[in-house]
């Protein structure tokens, strides 16, 4: 009997150690989440304004820019945003569920640009053609870090093989709920943008979208110069915003997952303590029984 109490004691110890780790991870994720959320909220204003500008521009039919027109090809490029690390609950699983659904329901050749190790793994497993994979993006994401992704996406799109580019990411709604979203990135069309503006931040109030503009814009120095600068930057901003939202969601799901892991550990320790006490009591009773029966035998 003594062995069993010892084994239980060891288990309690190891569960407690695991709990310490999950607790620490929960706290780290919580603080990282706070920062990521702050950041994504801070850039929402810019993103919203930029999208409005883009939608005003794209309403003008006279303007010609390769990024405003659907591509000549018939393939679709997907930018898949997932995490680099695991232990974040259903975060990646949800992204991939949505993706699989998309792939099955669309009969088209899909090429992928992956952000995050898990995205890369998924793309390889489902035999998608991977154009590029960006892993280990810095924790403190800056617009500079996105530039590479945006450049790749835009360059590939301009080559004309693709009809459109969409991005798969997780929209941060609140700490408890995120939703996976697939939205259009290129070509820049008004429908995409109105949706993006409304969705930015998960709050679906459409009234924030600025009213119709009737008069068209003048461009300085020239239409082409402005569009050449504005459209790629705005595409970059959209990618940046998607990554920030995904980040915030990743940390929040990690926090929630680690919280429930810690709670489970608590429960387990309770159960184990109970069985430990039972085993201890049983062994004491046994001993007393042995002694008293020995005494009787004398």
């Amino acid at each position: 009997m003594a062995i069993s109490t010892k084994a239980i004691k060891n288990r309690i110890k190891s569960v407690n150690n695991t709990k310490k780790i999950t607790k620490a991870m929960e706290m780290v994720a919580a603080s990282k989440m706070r920062r990521a959320v702050e950041k994504s909220i801070a850039s929402r204003e810019y993103a919203k304004r930029a999208l409005e500008l883009l939608s005003h521009i794209s309403k003008d039919n006279l303007l010609q820019h390769p990024l405003l027109k659907p591509g000549k090809g018939d393939k679709t490029m997907l930018v898949i945003v997932a995490s680099d690390k695991g232990l974040c609950g259903g975060f990646n699983v949800n992204v991939f569920k949505e993706l699989r659904h998309y792939i099955n329901s669309h009969d088209e050749e899909i090429h992928a640009v992956c952000v995050g190790k898990y995205a890369e793994r998924f793309a390889k497993k489902s035999n998608l053609n991977v154009l590029g994979s960006f892993i280990d993006m810095p924790d403190d994401l800056s617009p500079e870090d996105i530039r590479g992704i945006a450049r790749l996406v835009i360059d590939e799109y301009l080559k004309g093989e693709y009809r459109r580019v969409r991005v798969v990411y997780t929209n941060f709604v609140s700490a408890m709920s995120n939703e996976v979203d697939i939205r259009g990135l290129l070509p820049v069309t008004e429908a995409h943008i109105t949706r993006s503006i409304a969705d930015t931040g998960g709050t679906k109030d459409k009234e924030d979208v600025s009213p119709e503009v009737t008069r068209l814009y003048q461009f300085e120095p020239s239409d082409e110069a402005v569009l050449d600068l504005v459209v790629p930057i705005l595409t970059e901003v959209q990618i940046y915003q998607s990554l920030l939202e995904s980040r915030a969601s990743e940390y929040s799901s990690r926090m929630v997952a680690m919280k429930s892991a810690s709670e489970n550990a608590d429960e387990m320790v309770e159960d184990l303590t109970l069985s430990f006490n039972k085993a201890r009591q049983a062994s004491i009773t046994q001993e007393i029984l042995e002694i008293s029966s020995g005494a009787q035998g004398l």
Binding site: L53, I57, V213, R215, L216, Y217, Q218, F219, E220, P221, A225, V226, L229, V230
Partner: peptide, 18 residues
């Protein structure tokens, strides 16, 4: 702006500049 300094007053015509 890239085309030189501009001063904007109320009721300026819609414009996008770098």
């Amino acid at each position: 702006t890239t085309d030189g300094e501009i001063t904007v007053l109320a009721r300026h015509t819609p414009l996008v500049a770098i």
